[in-house]
Design a protein around this nucleic acid. Structure first.
Lengths: 150, 150
DNA sequence: GCTACACCTTCCAACCATTGGAACCTCCAG
DNA sequence: CTGGAGGTTCCAATGGTTGGAAGGTGTAGC
C-alpha cells in the first residue's frame, strides 16, 4: 500500500510517517519503481504501536527500544517494564512540578482581589528578589523541614 | 552595566538576555559606542521578574503581558489575575493528562511480571487496535477523581 | 607595541515532535 | 491534453534554551 493508505489505516499522518523514517524509527519495506514508498500491514501495526506509545508520552527514543522489544520474540518483559517505570517516574516528576506551581498560583490568585485597582500580590511575588517562601516566617511555628507537601 | 553583570545580577544567562531582546521581551536601554549593550538596575529587576515567571511556567507571550501590566501603574489587577487563572488552567490540564497516563502505566506495570520471559501486558496494550478503555467497565468503580491531596 | 585573556558582538545549529508550504513528479480519468 | 489527487524532496516554524564559531574590544602584564 502507499503512504496515504498506511496513514489512514494507522491514524499517523503521511508527513509524520516520513519523519519517522528519517529518524530511523520505521522505514518502508520497498520503494515502487516510481519512488513511492510501499507499506505492508505490519507497518500499519507498528505505526499504531508508535501512535499509542506517543499518546502515553513516550519519547521517540524509548519507542525505538519498545519497538525493538516488541519485534524480538526472545525479549525479557523486565526490559519493557523498566522502560515503562522510568517513563512513569519522569511523568510523575513533571506532574508534581506542575502541581507545585498550581499550588503557588492558587495562593496568589486567592490573594489578588482582581478588581480595577493596581495592587496585585501576583505581580508582587513575581518581582520579589528571590527568597520565595517568605510567606512562611522563619523559625516561627517550627513545623520542621519545608516540603510543600504533596 | 554590561550584559555579563546583568546576567550575574539576575541569574539569567547573557545568551538568554540577548534572546529575550530578539523577541522584543526586554531590550537594553542603550548601546555603548563599541556596540556593547548597557543595562540599568531596572533591567535586572525585570530579568528577575521574567525568571520567576518562567519558573512558574508562564510562556514568554504571557510574560510579555505581565511585564506590561507590571510597568503600568494604572493596571487593573483583574487583568493580572485573569492571566494567572488561564495559566493555572493550562497547567491543571497538563497535570491531569499526565496523571491519566500515570494511572494507565500503573495498571500495565502492575500486570507485567517483569521477568525474563517475553509475555508483557505493556506491549500488548501498545499493540492493541485502539479501543482503549476496555479494561474499565462503564460506570463502575466510581471512586472519583484521584486527588493526591496536596 | 605585543600578547594574553576576558568580555562583548553576530550568526548558525541543535534539542523534540509535528505541521505547513513550495516546487516538482506521477498516475489516472475525462 | 488537462485536471486533480496522490506521491517526492527540501526548508521553515513552533518554544525556550544552550552551544559553538568567528571576530571585535578592553585591559592587564611584559
Amino acid at each position: 500500500m502507499l503512504i496515504g493508505e498506511a496513514a489512514q489505516g494507522s491514524g499517523v499522518s503521511a508527513k509524520l510517517i516520513r519523519y519517522y523514517e528519517s529518524t530511523g524509527l520505521l522505514s518502508a519495506s520497498h520503494r515502487h519503481s516510481n519512488g513511492y514508498r510501499l507499506y505492508e500491514e505490519r507497518h500499519v501495526h507498528e505505526l499504531r504501536f508508535i501512535k499509542r506509545a506517543r499518546s502515553l508520552g513516550f519519547p521517540i527514543r524509548e519507542i525505538r527500544s519498545l519497538l525493538d522489544l516488541w519485534r524480538n520474540k526472545r525479549r525479557a518483559s523486565s526490559k519493557v517494564r523498566a522502560i515503562a517505570m522510568r517513563h512513569r517516574s519522569v511523568l510523575e516528576e513533571r506532574a508534581r512540578s506542575y502541581q507545585g506551581i498550581i499550588d503557588v498560583l492558587d495562593h496568589l490568585i486567592a490573594a489578588c482581589k482582581g478588581d480595577d485597582r493596581p495592587d496585585c500580590p501576583i505581580l508582587e511575588d513575581l518581582s520579589r528578589p528571590s527568597a520565595r517562601s517568605s510567606r512562611r516566617p522563619p523559625r516561627i511555628g517550627g513545623s520542621g523541614p519545608s516540603a510543600k507537601g504533596s
